[in-house]
């Protein structure tokens, strides 16, 4: 009985897959040619890389909302963490890092070599975003990765507090982006995130620099705050 049922499920899945495949092939080709529209307006975007032009200029609000989502995720994590335990309270001091066991020494050496290179590469990716693959998100992920590597190598303790400086840093990029959006929307004849001619390149670079800093802190925070909670929770729960 069960074998028959399984067979039925498999057959139904195959039919559904075939139907979807057929529907996809049957779609009429789009009459809107977005790639050509982007290419035609690329000169006005302030950057020469079409992906960055779309993300930071033509569809800037999309990126703005994306960054908001990440920031809200961080806030959600912080509220849960503060409710859950005493870590993150102002007086709590993390225990000093223990002396590294021998097997960590190679990793520590590697981390000390790699992290400066990662920060350099993040700066390059941020700059390169204007004319080739790269940009704020990739640079920020690299910065956060450097933080994770330092933490795993035992060189950077997990974040038990999220101090005012870090809070400010994690909102800077979003704040600047929102200010730019408000200013462009409030300007006479302006539309939301429609940069004034000639300013686009500079504004995009400034926004991306702020976003790299903020997203780096936010993404690193996801890992470093959670690993603090994990080590703290396992000590106190049982």
């Amino acid at each position: 009985m069960k074998g028959v049922l399984d067979l039925l499920v498999i057959v139904l899945c195959l039919v559904l897959g075939a139907a979807l495949w057929w529907a996809m092939l049957d779609l009429p080709s789009s009459r809107i040619h977005l790639a050509e529209q982007v290419a035609a307006k690329l000169d006005a975007s302030g950057v020469t890389h079409p992906v960055t032009a779309v993300l930071l200029n033509f569809r800037g609000y999309d990126t703005l909302i994306e960054v908001m989502v990440l920031f809200v995720a961080l806030i959600g994590m912080l509220t849960q963490a503060e409710k859950g335990s005493q870590w993150l309270s102002a007086g709590y001091r993390p225990p000093p890092l223990p002396a590294p066991p021998f097997h960590l020494e190679v990793l520590q050496w590697l981390a000390r070599v790699l992290v400066p290179l990662m920060i350099l590469t993040a700066g390059y990716l941020l700059w390169a975003g204007a004319h080739r693959a790269g940009g704020a998100f990739q640079a920020a992920a690299l910065l956060a990765g450097a933080g994770v590597l330092l933490n795993l190598a035992g060189l950077l303790p997990a974040w038990t507090t999220f101090r005012a400086g870090m809070r400010a840093g994690s909102i800077t990029g979003l704040l600047f982006f929102v200010l730019a959006a408000a200013a462009t929307a409030a300007a006479p004849h302006g539309h939301l995130l429609q940069y004034p001619a000639g300013w686009a390149g500079m504004l995009i670079l400034l926004i991306e620099t702020g976003l790299t800093l903020s997203l780096g802190l936010i993404l690193a925070g996801f890992f470093l705050l959670l690993s603090a909670e994990a080590s703290d929770g396992s000590d106190t729960e049982e």
């Binding site: 992906v51 990716l125 080739r132 693959a133 790269g134 940009g135 998100f137 990739q138 992920a141 690299l142 956060a144 990765g145 994770v148 795993l152 993404l219 996801f222 890992f223 959670l226 690993s227 994990a230």
Partner: peptide, 21 residues
């Protein structure tokens, strides 16, 4: 290449580290 960079750094790297955690 843009998506490849993001996928390697965020999808494989950071998400992987979080899941391992």
């Amino acid at each position: 290449a843009d998506i490849a960079l993001a996928e390697a750094a965020i999808g494989a790297g950071l998400t992987g580290a979080l899941l391992l955690n």
